[in-house]
Design a binder for these strands. Structure first.
Lengths: 360, 360
DNA sequence: AATCTTTTCGTTAACGTTAACGATTAATAA
DNA sequence: TTATTAATCGTTAACGTTAACGAAAAGATT
């Protein structure tokens, strides 16, 4: 059962009339080989289509120097923090790649404080990491970080959200605009023509997040693209969230309107809204929200939330590590940019997507 | 950056006071080691939690004997055959595992002829395969096949559908009952109370397929579980499909009824139905179907189909190979049984799921 | 021309596992 | 007892890649 295997370094050496040491030097761009022989070797590599055996390579390297990845994400304050989810996926991927020689180091920043991001990113730069997984929360600070990383040729993958930065980076995240469009489609199906809609942005002291804004834009774009646009009413309500939500604004605008209403909450906190709307249970609300946290799932189960959109945070982390491994071992960058599908969750299919199910 | 690596075979040998050859014999259950030393070695393996390095193992073994997988699926007649999709995923996984030493051999049967399944499965049994990927289309023939495979301890993974067989096997497929429930939920959202529904089973000469039946059952179960069951009307129509669909039955029952109607087509052929209903365009139909074939997607795009359910056929094949590899190299069976999520597809998120997107 | 640098290259020992091949000891037969 | 066979075990070379080490050749310096 011996097969015509792809050529190894030994075959290349024989064909080029040199030793495997020289081939290795060419492959790794190390000095100590004359221009002439280098050219010859590269030609043979081209012709034969030599591909290094990652198995053998990692077997050797895992014992000497691990692939070191740093992960810089927001602090995980409580047990149900969103950021536990990508971390779960990252840890899973690292565990799977354990014997390939890989290590992960976590750094945390305060998501209300750009300076903490800067401090932590500087800590990372002091070390000798091969790649970074992070989140483009703060525009200027992310740009600074990217600039320094570009100089030292360290790969970066951003999770969760995307914004225009001055340096190219890799993104594994959901297209929030498209997610907003999907939300529009789903609510329209429930309300039909001439619907009444409310986009609820739950904002913090730093204002609205880029993800949420893009979701709203997508939502509105969906209704604009209808054959009879303008027949629907869409209102945006920005609710500040510090300790608690203040419903002063929402009560007259939403509750006191007649007929069915479509509510689109652009972040993970739709459950907060519903917690406070308990006393208005007779209002006919249709709600689409984001993320499969415990509270949202409870409302999905009892029918207060019709649809949830999942952005597969666990898989984002998982895919980032796997993608980086592939890139660092094979120079294959294709898996570092993933447009996460807009998963639609209803009561009946919710279980599949919980507990960090890692299937596509 | 040298790390406390998990112990290798050499450490075990030293601790047990024997040579690595003996350890290897114990690990592979090969003869030539006395009961006493075997016991001792096993104890050390227990204590240290030794795990073999798959990297090194496959590096060695890939050169001598490949992992050989046979895949027995229905014939692929035309370019848009459903069975091209799992095959795509299988080939992708095999390509990724190429240097690990793996090979795939395809066998095809005629899905209308159980005897062709039997013949092909006998062909497979003549060879020396390590594992089988197939489809439990024919109950008695699948049972026969499983029995013979069990004797020779060959692993089996069934894709696509599930039915009760006399021998245990692994399944990577979507729970069709749950998919039917989801379809019920989606159509109900569009029709609201007291809806009028039609379940369309498109059947062939061998009768209704098990998947389709389970989907119908799930659909009906959904409406049974409503708080006010019995208010909805649900009719089942079995349409024979040989060369073409005959709409004689469907016209009076569906088209001539007043008001909006929900249509649930339990297989991939919803486009066939719509092809024939072109002349009745003014009827208010809401349609949920299965599978992202080209024709269904076209109807999704132009709004004739509201929702499609995706069963990720490419991923099923992909996961089968990856799961088998993990099982055959690490005795880890956990990835051989996957309950594929019921992906809900609308016009706005369809693109993510096309072209065999392999992300969870 | 002889010595010293520098450049260029081949040799070799690992990484951890596998399995063929011998070597040693124990068990049986003569 | 000695010869023969069987059971038990250690040694070794390989899988393909990596990189340290040192040898040889070429170049520069007195």
């Amino acid at each position: 059962m011996k097969n015509e295997n792809s050529p190894g370094i030994k075959e290349i050496a024989k064909l080029a009339g040199v030793s495997i040491g020289t081939i290795d030097r060419v492959l790794h761009n190390r000095p100590g080989v004359s221009a002439k022989t280098k050219e010859k070797v590269l030609e043979i590599i081209q012709q034969t289509g030599y591909k290094k055996n990652i198995l053998a390579s990692r077997l050797k390297l895992a014992a000497t120097r691990k692939i070191q990845i740093a992960c810089l994400i927001p602090e995980i304050k409580d047990k149900s923090s969103y950021w536990k989810l990508p971390q779960y996926g990252i840890n899973k991927a690292v565990a799977e790649l354990k014997e390939q020689g890989i290590s992960i180091s976590y750094y945390y920043f305060n998501s209300f404080d750009p300076r903490s991001f800067e401090e932590q990113s500087n800590e990372i730069l002091k070390k000798d990491f091969d790649a970074i997984i992070s989140v483009p929360f703060f525009k200027t600070e992310s740009n600074q970080f990217l600039q320094k990383l570009e100089e030292s040729e360290i790969a970066v993958v951003f999770l969760d959200s995307r914004q225009e930065l001055n340096f190219k980076a890799n993104y594994i995240n959901q297209d929030s605009f498209k997610a907003g469009q999907v939300a529009g489609r789903l609510l329209e199906g429930l309300l039909k023509e001439n619907g009444l809609y409310f986009v609820i942005n739950i904002i913090n002291e730093r204002g609205i997040q880029v993800n949420n804004l893009q979701r709203e834009q997508g939502f509105r774009a969906y209704f604009q693209s209808k054959s009879n646009p303008g027949k629907d009413e869409i209102y945006t309500i920005n609710l500040p969230f510090d300790d608690h939500l203040d419903l002063q604004e929402i009560i007259p605008k939403v509750i006191e309107r007649q007929g069915p209403k479509g509510i689109f909450v652009t972040n993970a906190r739709s459950f907060r809204l519903l917690d406070l709307l308990k006393e208005y249970e007779d209002t006919e609300l249709f709600l689409v929200g984001f993320d499969l946290n415990e509270q949202n799932l409870a409302y999905l189960k009892n029918g207060k939330i019709q649809f949830l959109i999942n952005q597969k945070p666990e898989y984002q982390g998982y895919a980032a590590v796997k993608g980086l491994y592939k890139y660092l071992t094979s120079q294959d960058q294709t898996e570092l940019n993933i447009d996460i599908p807009v998963d639609i969750i209803v009561k009946e299919n919710a279980e599949f997507y919980m507990n960090g199910h890692m299937t596509p």
